[in-house]
Nucleic acid binder design. Structure first.
Lengths: 169, 169
DNA sequence: TTGTATTTTCAGTAATTAATGAAAATTAAG
DNA sequence: CTTAATTTTCATTAATTACTGAAAATACAA
């Protein structure tokens, strides 16, 4: 194994280990990492061999990555196998992650809160009013995060971030 | 069970179910949700009873929530039991979440990338140069997210968010 | 200091998620 | 249309995470 291959393998392995901190499974993170640094689109067989995983596992996680929008299927003329490549533009990755975070985290949370807020609205007791107030306050935070991610993920302009950083400084 | 109690229970249960999407376990999310809407600080026994969980489970998750900074232990005069309360200021919650996301997600990811970037720097092949380039690009994205979360979590001023939203619009 | 209250720990169990590998289903080439 | 390549599915197993409950450790009151 060359130094290059060792570096690549370490990167993919460690990236995979971090996956579970991000709420995705290790294999999905490893596949993504591998495709991110691959100069060419790869087949299921390529990935099975590179990562020592089963065909079923590869298939499941490739489909999940496609649903995230982080990778796409590529048609290769003259080939019957599906090829996959990763989205490599870091700005686009950023938007995808923000969008998916919104979809999987802040939107469902806000829906739960809104339901409980509307149900608690008509409760007259002091305790009920306090619950209503607290849930409303919490929903403001969640909606705010939702709003920020919505805006970030729909901005087609990578110059937006320097502007945000300017405000922060 | 009153309507109020039903709403509270639904909120806690559903919040708990969302926890696994956020990378925390269901019980930890439920404890946090319960403390967030509790008018008073609560004991381990209170939580055990309210959420039907074991003492060991309660202890483990309370300690984890304390390490996140989302709850704190409260000294009650004349009481031997530990009481816990949640941080209820939504702006502070926002900062805590940003800080912990940074600590658990973007910082470790950036460390992995930086290590691999420095190791790939001396590789002369075209493939090595391409790997170096792609890892560097990816690290820019991760460092950017890191930077934003650093700034957000250390700003002691809740007026910063309207400014960010203004830039986004 | 003793006894009891309280918290923490941890061996073992339970629950959930991830993965395998072979069969079923689908697709494409001849 | 047939055959083979390829992908998807799914029953089962494996791995990982979460939880229990009792014992150990710690803290506090008398």
């Amino acid at each position: 194994m060359t130094e290059l291959e060792q570096i690549k393998q370490d990167y993919v392995t460690q990236w995979g280990a971090l996956g579970s901190q991000w709420g995705i499974n290790r294999t999905m993170a490893m596949i993504h990492a591998h495709l991110l640094v691959s100069p060419t689109a790869l087949t299921t067989d390529d990935l099975m061999e590179a990562l020592s995983i089963s065909r079923g596992n590869a298939n499941t996680n490739l489909r999940e990555l496609v649903s995230w929008g982080l990778i796409r299927s590529v048609v290769m003329r003259g080939e019957r196998k599906d090829y996959y490549e990763a989205e490599k533009d870091v700005w686009k990755i950023f938007c995808i992650v923000a969008r998916e975070r919104k979809r999987r985290e802040t939107e469902p949370a806000s829906m739960v809160l809104q339901d409980c807020i509307s149900r608690s609205k008509s409760i007259k007791s002091a305790e009920g009013k306090e619950l209503h107030k607290q849930l409303t306050s919490l929903n403001e935070f969640v909606s705010l995060a939702n709003n920020i991610m919505e805006k970030v993920s729909t901005k087609g302009d990578s110059t937006i971030i320097p502007k945000i950083l300017k405000v922060l400084n």
